[in-house]
Design a protein around this nucleic acid. Sequence first.
DNA 1: CCTACCGATCGGTAGG
DNA 2: CCTACCGATCGGTAGG
Lengths: 229, 229
Amino acid sequence: MSASAPAATTGAAPGAVDGRRLRGDRTRRAVLDRAVHAASVEGLDGLTFGTLAASVPVNKSGIAGLFGSKEGLQLAVVAHARDVYRATVVLPAAEGEPGLARLWRTVLAWLTYSEERVFDGGCFFRAAATELDARTPGPVRDAVVAALRDWDAYLVRLATGAVERGELAEGTDVGQLVFTLDAVLDRADLASVLLADPDAYARARRAARGLLAAAGADPAALPADGLDG
Amino acid sequence: MSASAPAATTGAAPGAVDGRRLRGDRTRRAVLDRAVHAASVEGLDGLTFGTLAASVPVNKSGIAGLFGSKEGLQLAVVAHARDVYRATVVLPAAEGEPGLARLWRTVLAWLTYSEERVFDGGCFFRAAATELDARTPGPVRDAVVAALRDWDAYLVRLATGAVERGELAEGTDVGQLVFTLDAVLDRADLASVLLADPDAYARARRAARGLLAAAGADPAALPADGLDG
DNA sequence: CCTACCGATCGGTAGG
DNA sequence: CCTACCGATCGGTAGG
């Protein structure tokens, strides 16, 4: 689960493009690359300036200065995770045929993203969503909610396109389909990360194929490798 | 998701049953009742002796003494959560007709458990599983894994019973069915807690009914209220 | 199960 | 982005 739509930039400040700026942006990106992996394992709350500083060539106070506050760091991490997610899951699967083929490629791209551990701890957004779900609302929780909603809306858009092209049955409850489909993706990530279940991804593909077939998809249009079939 | 099988006791120590013991057990239970709610919201790592002491009539050092260490507290909280889960989800649904009816009652009991917020933050085990999934193995993570495995095995047992009674199709891939069914339960909990989605539980019931029907269940045997129909 | 206290780490700032 | 430092909170213990 995660982010898709309008570009959530990492939040670089304005200003003259001189040597310091460039160096600052590079440093910032290096810290965020580490931080998003760490957050996928230890949670957004588990991030600390101190432990982060130990694995990056910037010291504790340098990191605090770079992001202003812990909340500033967390917001930058969520935005960075969206950028990575968009580049690994959304965009590659959005090339080629639209409609059912694109939806199916997106499902497969998601499972690959999880299986290849693009984030050390599995899907960053599953971790962040569950960490913050019952917490008092605030900017970080809001950012995670927005990412989830955008991802859900994106899948609904893809499924609606498949219905319009006649590749899924007319009258399909697209919200219901996406609810169950995304549930299966999340469960595969959990089963793999927590239980090291070797069947997790095969199960998820099988379940997703079954859900789409029940909605009228031609099984031949749902190949295991995601190529337009 | 969670715990079912052999009683995970809260771990009372042996010793003469005198006034101090009894008072100690009552205190212990009062602390655990608070702690399990807090952990469902803030995570098992978010528990601290200090904040717990602020909401219970025992001070920080008293709690540390009661559980020996933070890890001891976390283990006791997991065991306590299993006790509560068994009493609210597993046992009530296990009365009456076995087979498909029992499986269906269990699904509905789970959704009620989530919706009624038996734990303040939604399903304790979903929170704990995702918090610890990518962490270094240790006793607490092991306890959470055991709870999840027991719950999964319990659902597989129920579904197998339904197959044996001819209420689900012969040859049903029971592991696959439970994988998807439990995915849907978890997603309902997340959608309700994180997004306050008013359709979450209706969607989950509909999805679960669809999965069982696809496995050959008579839809008339899957009433909305869980009574043997 | 309380008082009193420990060293370590937390988020953050002053000042350059 | 570094050195040096702050008050607060952490998990845990001594001693009763």
